[in-house]
Write a protein that binds this DNA or RNA. Sequence first.
DNA 1: AACACTGCGATTGTACACAATGGATGGTGT
DNA 2: ACACCATCCATTGTGTACAATCGCAGTGTT
Lengths: 254, 254
Amino acid sequence: MNEQLQPLKKQPRAGKAGRSGTQDDIVYAHIFEAILEQRLAPGTKLSEEALGEIFGVSRTIIRRALSRLAHEGVVLLRPNRGAVVASPSVEEARQVFMARRLVERAITELAVQHATAEQIAELRQMVNDERDSFSRGDRGAGIRLSGEFHLKLAEAAKNTPLISFQRSLVSQTSLIIAQYESGNRSHCSYDEHTQLIDAIEKRDGELAVNLMMHHMDHIDSKLNLDEESASDDLHAVFSHLLQTKKPGRSPAKL
Amino acid sequence: MNEQLQPLKKQPRAGKAGRSGTQDDIVYAHIFEAILEQRLAPGTKLSEEALGEIFGVSRTIIRRALSRLAHEGVVLLRPNRGAVVASPSVEEARQVFMARRLVERAITELAVQHATAEQIAELRQMVNDERDSFSRGDRGAGIRLSGEFHLKLAEAAKNTPLISFQRSLVSQTSLIIAQYESGNRSHCSYDEHTQLIDAIEKRDGELAVNLMMHHMDHIDSKLNLDEESASDDLHAVFSHLLQTKKPGRSPAKL
DNA sequence: AACACTGCGATTGTACACAATGGATGGTGT
DNA sequence: ACACCATCCATTGTGTACAATCGCAGTGTT
């Protein structure tokens, strides 16, 4: 019936893949945001036709967007069976976090060397936005902005392959956090982000790396992955069964 | 006229992205191989219609394959202007190598921990194939197989995101080697690969990492990147101008 | 009553037709 | 003769129709 063709957040995010194709990027960004803000639960089926109707574009565009999302790991593309929001297993989550430690360490060291004053100012701005989101109670936006902070940091490292990889890792991390985070703990403490920026601004590489590693420790210590992951793990294992958007009464029949 | 629909190397490469779509993967793999074996020079324009005719499929398939290749960094997708084989600049090459050092170190450490006897045997087989290619004088296949060795090593590390990243890095590295390697030096000495396997089999992590780092040193010491990169750099800068496959008399008119 | 098989519906996979964009070429004016 | 501009052509971008595939439900049999 009603189409959502209003550009919504048409922020000139020039740091993206550089594509000038607006339609493409809008659809991509919207689905991406919806997943990361947990408005689309893991396991939700993403019908091409339905999405095309929502965004007022043809399946061709939707298909490209889904393909990109699949390549980043936030969407699972099953041949002949359509796309679903990815639901990372515990093992996958651990692999992502291992890779992130690796990348974040390198990014931090490089950012200390290369970050410009302007980029540092932008980072501070992002932390502000993040804090605002959490104080506003918008957990989904907070998770997303926290991820974008780490992505911005990667841009300061001035290494294109690393940026690309980091984008994929951050996306998956956000999905994992949305899925596994225990309760209502402030998941990615923004004051740690502030301290990190301070260290980078002072060009103190060792301190910055230490802070980042502690930050990583905090993040996955808040998840239920490591030992007592029975309950949420079970949820993850069977999440592909409840593919409808209604989280109502599906698990009962197990 | 004649279509190349024979599957050619239909090796059951199960380690890929898991897609069952054969057409898709065949086209992708063929273009990929052609680029890495330097049968398609950097800057060569990849016309959708021409490729579709060659492989006997529609432009839809070609487009998907090109999109995947673009995401891996071996193809450049210019909006409304078509796809060309990527021609990495010196700066891009250095970034790729920096990222590779990072990833290879981690992969080596993980492979020492997790590699199975079967995987080690496969690695040895790949080194044999690589040596055969070089002794046969097939430099292109050698470069490609050398890359696949590093990719196989990544699979032994048992970390999906790292494997995916490594695939992208190795692809771009092969392209860089094909573009910048000086003369006829044996670019990726396979005996270093053998030594590396030995260290992994003995589970000597420290030795393996040292060997890998020296291996990386050797690779980019053979390229003309670091200082005296004037001539080849110039070639890279202007390679997007000579987009035809005929390397005949294009640079003269400069 | 439970299992297996077959037909149907829905959704994705592919090809093709049309629209839009960019570059090239030829003409004209100064 | 050179530069500028308009038109044409080639190539890509997008939408849509048709074909193939898979899951599911209904039906029959053991």
